[in-house]
Design a protein around this nucleic acid. Sequence first.
DNA 1: ACCTATCTTATGGTCATACCAGTTGTCCAG
DNA 2: CTGGACAACTGGTATGACCATAAGATAGGT
Lengths: 230, 230
Amino acid sequence: MTELFAAIERRSIWQDVASQVRKMIEDGTIAPGQKLPSERDMCQQFGVSRISLREALRALEREGFIEVQAGRGAFVRAHFDRERHVLETLIGFSRESAEKVFELRMLFEPNLAGLAARSISLENLERLRETVERMRDHVENPEAAIQADSDFHRVLSESTGNPLVESLVRFVMTATGSERLVTLNSREGVERALVGHERVLAAVAAGDEEGAAKAMKEHLQDAVAFARCF
Amino acid sequence: MTELFAAIERRSIWQDVASQVRKMIEDGTIAPGQKLPSERDMCQQFGVSRISLREALRALEREGFIEVQAGRGAFVRAHFDRERHVLETLIGFSRESAEKVFELRMLFEPNLAGLAARSISLENLERLRETVERMRDHVENPEAAIQADSDFHRVLSESTGNPLVESLVRFVMTATGSERLVTLNSREGVERALVGHERVLAAVAAGDEEGAAKAMKEHLQDAVAFARCF
DNA sequence: ACCTATCTTATGGTCATACCAGTTGTCCAG
DNA sequence: CTGGACAACTGGTATGACCATAAGATAGGT
């Protein structure tokens, strides 16, 4: 049932403004962290009223592209920050405990590792190896270790080539950030995580689907168990 | 490191208005599809200017709660419609992505079934059984079958008591809606799905963790394979 | 020279009012 | 019953003004 005529879209001014700004943010014309011109300036540049300009900013804010601070200005969000923001509004995450997030990770990350074992590219395998080595080089540096941890799981997700999965992993890594700040704060914590990553890596490199899934499962279980010690 | 004082949150008027309306939508005071009062009416009821009211509406619109139509009014979106809307803004979801969503489901739904086999309550088990029976009663009715299919997976997710997992399942069921519209449109499609559900149910009821995971995996694989026939 | 309180200025937040444009319903002429 | 004219309503946009906060500049006391 194909319609003969396409519906006429009525684009409002604030939508045009929002699109334009959104585009500039996406292609990097305006860098993350950077401050946008003042509302009054932008009004003049776009040739629209403050009303329209502000409604555009409001929309961009809800989409997570910018953050507006009264008396200061509007700032471009970092994109990972944007994803967290949007997911929070979607599932009302902020009040959930890290435990719930770990439960979710336990559901899909083992299979994700298994999938990677079957289909990861040589390039991504190398990137995965790099994150493990980087963690090994920084067992005494919690900040770097946490970064390496995030990267390990992220690279695994990217081996699927599935943006949905990548988004989900980025989200859970962001969401468990504070938790990992605790478990990876000690040398022991980092070393335990390192062992887990090494086992997963070995299985993935060997193309051992079941082994990778098992290793990842144990890695996560170990992390949860270790976190409970605190 | 617990802070002594909590940060003072500056709540702007439009945020207050948005929160109030959002709450009314969430608890059903305003039903999906229903039309909100006109902007001018709401201004008076809330005792705010049209500016503030409109910025609140703009935010709610971006969050997917309402849809504003020029010259007509603002309408409450169905909640599934809302999740799709938000995910679209997050990952630029489009029709070609149905396959990606199935890939994601394959990653976690088998383990979800396994988890349910271990921990589902008698009440939820009964609800699960009901959805299967409902699908069996409507093998000739695609619409009812699709609903029963959604409910089956949703009940399974609710057995975890994890809102994060529940949101994810709601999302993937919404995202695969158009796909299931095809596969569950024939009697054969519904019957295949039914067999899958029955196997999962049997394993869950028996507390057979591995069996449930395996059954779910086969059910999803079968659905994907069947979809490819079209 | 240093710290502090105050003033100034820029910025976002809010308001009242007015007018435009599209939608809907009513009613009348054909 | 149809189609057009009209009125009432609704969201969209524009102006101009004033408030509250944030941040830098300035004057004053030590």
